[in-house]
Structure formats: structure tokens, C-alpha cells
Nucleic acid binder design. Sequence first.
DNA 1: AGCACGCCGACT
DNA 2: GTCGGCGTGCTC
Length: 717
Amino acid sequence: MSQHASGAGGVAGPEAEQPSLLLGFPEPARASAKPEPARERPVARVCVESPLPQLDRLFDYLVPEELSAAAQPGVRVRVRLSGQELSGFLLERVDASDSGVALQPLLKVVSPAVVLTPTIARLAAAVAERWAGALGDVLRFAVPPRAARVESEYLGELASGAAPEPEAPGPAATTGAATDDGGGPAGASAWAELQRGPAFLRHLGAGGSPRASLRAVEGYGPRGWPALVAEAVRAVRLTGRGALVVVPDGRDLERAFAALEEALPGDPIVRLAAEDGPSQRYRGFLDLLAGRARVAVGTRGAALAPVRDLGLVVCWDDGDDLHAEPRAPYFHTREVCLLRSELEGCALLLAGHAVSTEAQRLVESGWLQSVSAARSVLRRRLPRVVSTADSFETARDPYARMARLPHAAWQLAREALVEGPVLVQVARAGYAPSLACERCREPARCAECSGPLAENAGPGSARRIACRWCGTPANAWTCPHCGGKELRRSSIGALRTAEELGRAFPGAVVVTSSGENVKAEVPGSPALVVATVGAEPVAPKGYAAALLLDGDSLLGRESLRAGEEALRRWLNAAALVCPAGKGGRVVITAGDHEAVSALVRWDPEGFAARELGLRRTLSLPPAVRVAAVTGSRSAVDGFASAAAGVLGKPGVRTAGPVALPAPSGTAAADASWRLLIFFPVAEGPEATRALRAARIAHATRRGSEPVQLRLDGADVL
DNA sequence: AGCACGCCGACT
DNA sequence: GTCGGCGTGCTC
């Protein structure tokens, strides 16, 4: 170890590997580089931020005495590793190192703020393990980038003792209306109408930690899901515990935030979203850390927020793919919430209008209780849903399909437009590119109903050109304007659809919500509201009707989850429509499909159960787990040979590697290849450990190119 | 990734 | 006999 004689005369170093240049000198450079070690626990265990998988472990550093006070577990530090200066997190102070090498000194404590709590450090480690990723990558998400100014203000306030702890809302509800059943902010609690709903709330309110899969009924108004979620949060707050709500996007964030503020007057709510900018984000993070705020709502990064004494974690619409983090280690917030509820022993709500197959699996295994409305409640609260496919079946007339569908949809819209806003859900431009005449650029229209023509992936590799509204094939098309016969793709989306609808409903107000211009809300006055999938605005009193167009293009996506995803999108849109008793109706224009009948029956659980059964039969996720290994051909092969041990185990199945469709402009030579590895859920921990080890072994090999290792990516199949 | 150490060719 | 090639391996 370092001789205490260091100080200025640290000459006594073990026969130095010093360049001869310095031999005459008392090693001035070293004198400062070899400071006196801390008297207490002189060794710091540090997780460095490095993209290299082989550096994903803790390294020991010597804590200089002058840094000892600041070098607390959970602070950011700078260290030297293999010559380069890196930043990292100090996770532990210990008495001695067992590394067997001479320790480098800690270079710097970036700030004395302890930004990583033991709870979050433990969660981050669990997340890294679950996704076979690097701890440093997870910590980047758990601790937002430092904003020095915000931090110094905060430290100053803490020092001056101006850090009030929020009071839990008083048990006597402040918002007067909480009289009838159970104290929702708007009086009538939507929880009361759910089977096992009151029991869940009671359990929360008694300090318990129940776990549920929650089927929200309405998507708007005082019984909408935001109020439902806020009421659960309020119940845990009354026990003094904190709560965390994770939502897929900014609009859901706004809505959840507003509902929480209403349900918890005086209780500060932290919003966590990347769009809010670094300083606001860091401020919210510090408020949670200090316990000044005990409730957080945010998009996926928020799943790792340091809410103190967490009592409840909520994941809204857990089937939304925005819950999957697109950067390494590619965690999914649903699963992070699950891990958290286990590690922190807190309550868990996976909530949505739809049920993901993952949530269904947890319900069937008994891990989650299902909380959902009885049929009678659904009938009272929901619009009537009809599928236009039904009528073709009964009509048995192929021409009925062409003529009647748009007519039925138009008629519904026309009638509903007297009452209020009508939602028109259309596919995103990229989903179903519309077609136009190659010669005159006029949009190509259906000869039968004047709907837009689109190119869909037909069965096999066949492409079929058909009307997006009525499905009539248009394989021999001639432009009525110029006589041209060639079609070109024109990626028009909601805007053009809106124009077309505007012409079909002269005099109607047409509003669009898509892409850059997403609207959160529309007024209750009559209007056609054309929105792309997932961008549907909320009408405060519910839409009078909804037309779910482009159903077939949602269903036709080549993905294992196309049906599940389509149903989820439809339910989310249909939940924005007022009840049938008030005239609310939904029409879906899609062919015969299990997802369509599940929508008509409003049976998300039944659909999820059936879908999960299918996946079990086929041994596909989420019945099994999957790892996707992506990279150049040689990299994937190299990884596979490093992972030969796991790949050969019974129960482990591989598919590929196959070449992925190259992004346009890329040479075929440097195409990506992908190997899929399926393994049983029960062997998850062992398999992920082995995959992580294989990646390290592969990365350490000379000349190896990196691979991307992605576990349980929902989009890979 | 850097940056070390380490064992074989053309120069002082 | 030394300077230096970059092949292999580690990084507290």
C-alpha cells in the first residue's frame, strides 16, 4: 500500500517505472497524484460510464483524505481508468480492496450531492441484470444530467433548512365533492364500479401493497383513467407513502398530471419528461430525492425516479411501444415497474383500456389481480361498437362491401355530427401510404366509393392495391383525370384524409391531430376530428361517435403483435366516445379478425387470454423470453460462438441469423444480421447472465465488432 | 476504446 | 546491439 511517507517526499515508491527524465526530481507530479488516503474506509467502489461491456463492473479507487467527506456513496466522481479520465458513480466505501492491484486515486467528487440512493442503485443493478446490460447505462437513465446551477440552489436551500416535507393530504377530503362513494375528486368514484376495485383501494389505504391489472373503462371526463389513477395515488399518499406514475407520452403525462393535481391539492407533483429541458428535469429529480415531493409522473425514464418510500407504481397503457426504451439497455417500463414493486415491496398497477399479453400472463399466474368492470357497467358506460364486416358477412354480397361500408360510416358520422365531435382514426402516413396518379399526381380514388387507394401487404409477398375505406381491390386502375395507368406512393396522411372527409361533409368543421401537430383536446362542438393512431385528442364530454378507418392496415402489419396492437389502439380511441345511452357509437372498418370481434364485444381480457394461449402453443413471447443479437454477420457469428454454452442448452431455441432489410442507401455488404434466441422464462436469470458474459467474451476478442443485445424487444418479431 | 507489454526486422 | 512494428491483454 502507499507508504505514509508520501507527502512531498514520496520517493520511496516501488522502483518506479518513471521515465528517466524525472529521476533527479522528488517526483513532483506524483506527489499530488499520490495523496494521503482517507483514514476511514479509504477504498471507493466505482461504476464507470463506459460503453465497453468489459468495463461493466466495479473498480476500486483510493479516496484521498481531502475528498473523504464528500466521497459518499451515491455521488458522481471522476476517475482515471486505463489512462483516460471517466466519470462514474461512487457506489460503496469499503476498508480494503481485494483487487490485488495498486489503486488509482479518486480524481474528483463532481458534486457533494448524493444523487443515487441505495434503493435506486439496487433497482438499477436489477435492471442491468434483467436486460443483460451495463449498470452504467442504466444509471444514466436513473440520474438525469447534472444542471450545476439548479443543484447549487438546491444545496443552498437544503443547508438553510428551507426544505419542507410535503404533508400527506388530510384524510378529510379537501375537494368537498368526495361524498358519495369513496372520495374521488369528482365525487362518483369510477373505482366503485369495478370488480375488486373498492377492495384494491381499501388495501392501498390500509398501507398494503396489492398488485393489479386494471381495465379502465372511460378515457375522458371525471371517470376517465387519469382520475382513476389519481385516486389510487391519493389512497397511498394518505398512508404517507410516495407514488410513481409512468405514461407512454407527453399528452398522457399532461392528463395524468392534471388529474393528480386535482386529486392532491397542496401535494407537489413532479413531472419528469425529457422534453421539459434539463434544468426543470433536474429540479424535479432533486425534489424527489430530498423528499420535498413524493409523487412523480413521467414518461419512461421516470420508471427509475427516486420517489421516497414508494407505496405505489403505476404503468399506464403498458402495451404501448413507447414504454420500450430505444437506447441500451432497452428496458421496458412495465417490467421496471414490476421489478420495483418486488424490490421495494410496493403496490403495482398495470392499467389500460387494453390488456397486454404480458399483463395477462401475470394475471393468469396469480401475480396480478384483475380489476375490471362487469358487463352491466360496460353497457352503461361504453358506446355501441359495430363492425362493418358483419354486414358483408350477412349480405353475402361482395358488392355490398363496396357500397355499404362507406355509406354506413358516412351515415353514422352525419348523424353524430349533429350531436358533437366525431373522431376519425386513420393510420399514420407511413403505415398505409396512399397512392396517386404517376402522371398527374391526382390522388387515386376508389371507383366504387371514392375512398383513397392504398397499397397493402397482401398474403405472402403479394401486394394488393385496394381502397382504404371499403377494401375494394383496384388492380387495374385508370386515372379518371388523365387516363394514366401508373400509381405512385404519396405519403399523405391525416391531412389529406381530412380534406377528403371535408368534401364528403360539406359545411363540417374539420380538425386534424397528427405528426407535429397533435392536439390534446377538442371542444364539445360538432366537428370531424381526424387523428392518426395514437394522436386522438380528448373531447371533455366524449365524442359523439368514432370511425376507426384503416383497420386492415393496422392488422396487416407483419408483426406478432399486430392484432394485440390494433385492438389496443381501437379500444383507446373508442374509450373516448360517450356511452351508447347518450348515442355514442363506434364503427370499425376492418375485415373479419379476432381483434375486431374483441372490440365489438369489448373483451380485452378474452382477447389477451386467447392471444397468450396462442403464444404458448407456439412458444413465442411472452410465453418465453427472447434475446435479439444484431450486428454484422461476423459479429453475430462471433457472439454466437462465445455464447455456444447457452445456445446449446435444452429449452433454448435459436432462429437465424437472418439479414435484416437494409435501410435504403446502405450497401448490402454492411447489412445487419439478427439472431434470435428464445429461452424459458424460468431460466431467464441464468440465460441473461450467460448472454452478458458472452458479450464480454466476444467484445474482448481481437478485431471483434460490437453486437447489439436486446432482450424481450417487443418489435423484433 | 486506449494503452500497456512483448517478441521479431532495419538502422546507429 | 537498439528503435520500433503492431499482436495480445487489461483496465481499479
